Deep mutational scan, measured.
Amino acid sequence: MAAGGDHGSPDSYRSPLASRYASPEMCFVFSDRYKFRTWRQLWLWLAEAEQTLGLPITDEQIQEMKSNLENIDFKMAAEEEKRLRHDVMAHVHTFGHCCPKAAGIIHLGATSCYVGDNTDLIILRNALDLLLPKLARVISRLADFAKERASLPTLGFTHFQPAQLTTVGKRCCLWIQDLCMDLQNLKRVRDDLRFRGVKGTTGTQASFLQLFEGDDHKVEQLDKMVTEKAGFKRAFIITGQTYTRKVDIEVLSVLASLGASVHKICTDIRLLANLKEMEEPFEKQQIGSSAMPYKRNPMRSERCCSLARHLMTLVMDPLQTASVQWFERTLDDSANRRICLAEAFLTADTILNTLQNISEGLVVYPKVIERRIRQELPFMATENIIMAMVKAGGSRQDCHEKIRVLSQQAASVVKQEGGDNDLIERIQVDAYFSPIHSQLDHLLDPSSFTGRASQQVQRFLEEEVYPLLKPYESVMKVKAELCL
């Protein structure tokens, strides 16, 4: 049975990233139509530049190519590739079939990587351009969430054990800070992308030097003109047959890092959902379990974690691919890159769409948070109580021993009897502590235990987050809708 299948058929496997999760716009960027249309555009740009620099290419040939950029006979191309065992030459023939007058000058002087690699770089750039505003929107939604809850005390956790208090907004800023680093890295790697350009079979530009009869300047002009037509500021000066596969490492490393950030955020949300302090959106008709109707599973956060793990592992592909590119190139890269580049971007696209949807509907339960604080705060307040007693004339050592005994009794009630923490009640009825009984409410005010959390939130948002989001103001209103 021949390899390949009808990918629109229910009898043929289709990647869930495309069929179930990723956005239509990201799927289109990695589609065959987008790819092969870009090949034709690159052939047109090459012909236009070659004509401008004096090669015998007519206006009629150029116009014929322009008129057929979208006229792609995919069936013919597939048949040609089956016959020739070469995808680029299959599309040269297919393009030439609908451009008979231009057929002889299509791909003039070029090698397969002229269309293959340059198209990949265009796709990487455009895919990054799709991700950047999506990530900015996630940051914006979380920034709104953090600002609104900047002063809401909550129990902090280290080692997932109760620690000092923080605020809900401050905790959210930990998430935002990681995503801001990801946004900066995505922008950097996007701006650092260079075009492969017009380089020939081993990167020496020998074929173009021959076409222009040894004119170095025209060869350099050709490279520059096509690079500018493709919208790049610069091209690699040095290439082998391909652009260095280190570029793929750079791009997928940034995406993998984004995956790590999203995994951490969504894990926190899942843990908070278990504590009943916070939940992701839950639709009115949504079913959490087929057997347990009360369940409210954090399905979206779980999906993000599941896909983020996949995204983090994909960076190993370009690392290994770059390491086995012998001399000017081997074909070890080809099949692998067809999979890992598309999957990385479709996965990143999915987790950003999902995280935006989550961040637009996060639900906080202040009463649950308050109750958990009441359970733990008495123990945390013991040092403040000791200091207040010393100020009232008591002995630190005597007070410490009193607190120690009462704390152990209260802990026994919590752990052995399943009761509430009654340390404060014990202190309130103990005559030894009568000098500070009137101060206990103040000493137990949760806001006095959150330090500068709310001020940190305000400063972080104003100095770091809002300036970073400013270039994306025009796209901030787009909502994230999930079908599944």
Rank of each mutant, 00 (worst) to 15 (best):
Gly259Pro: 00
Ala103Tyr: 03
Ser412Gly: 12
Phe28Cys: 13
Ser334Met: 14
Phe36Thr: 07
Leu44Cys: 03
Lys415Gln: 00
Leu482Cys: 00
Leu275Cys: 06
Tyr243Leu: 08
Val168His: 15
Ile123Lys: 02
Leu53Gln: 02
Glu343Val: 05
Arg85Tyr: 04
Ala273Asp: 15
Ile424His: 15
Ser12Arg: 09
Ile436Trp: 10
Ala90Gln: 08
Tyr365Trp: 15
Thr450Ile: 02
Leu258Ile: 05
Thr244Gly: 08
Val247Arg: 14
Pro24Glu: 14
Arg234Leu: 02
Leu275Tyr: 05
Gln221Phe: 11
Cys99Leu: 11
Trp175Leu: 03
Thr321Asp: 04
Ser301Pro: 04
Pro24Arg: 07
Ile105Glu: 04
Asp398Lys: 07
Thr111Met: 15
Ala431Val: 13
Asn297Ala: 05
Gly54Leu: 10
Ile176Lys: 09
Ile403Pro: 04
Val262Ser: 09
Arg404Thr: 07
Gly240Trp: 02
Asp215Arg: 10
Lys391Phe: 00
Val413Glu: 15
Gln397Ile: 09
Gln325Gly: 02
Lys66Tyr: 14
Met76Ala: 05
Arg171Gln: 05
Met181Pro: 00
Ser257Cys: 13
Asp182Asn: 04
Ser448Ala: 07
Cys99Met: 00
Gln408Arg: 09
Lys276Arg: 03
Ala335Pro: 11
His91Tyr: 05
Asp333Ile: 15
Asp182Arg: 05
Lys187Asp: 04
Ala410Gln: 15
Glu280Pro: 15
Glu462Val: 15
Gly8Gln: 14
Tyr472Val: 06
Ser447Met: 12
His159Gln: 02
Arg85Phe: 00
Asp129Gln: 05
Gln61Leu: 08
Ala342Gly: 08
Leu108Phe: 04
Phe195Asn: 02
Phe345Gln: 05
Ile72Asn: 09
Gly169Met: 02
Ala163Asp: 03
Gln428Phe: 10
Leu165Gly: 11
Val429Thr: 14
Ala260Gly: 11
Ser289Ile: 14
Phe145Tyr: 13
Gln41Trp: 05
Leu84Asn: 11
Leu183Cys: 02
Lys391Gly: 06
Arg300Asp: 01
Ser412Phe: 14
Leu69Pro: 01
Pro100Asp: 06
Gln286Met: 09
Gly156Phe: 02
Ser454Gly: 10
Lys415Pro: 07
Leu132Ala: 09
Ala102Glu: 13
Trp45Pro: 08
Gln210Gly: 06
Ala102Ser: 07
Val168Lys: 01
Phe208Ser: 03
Leu255Met: 06
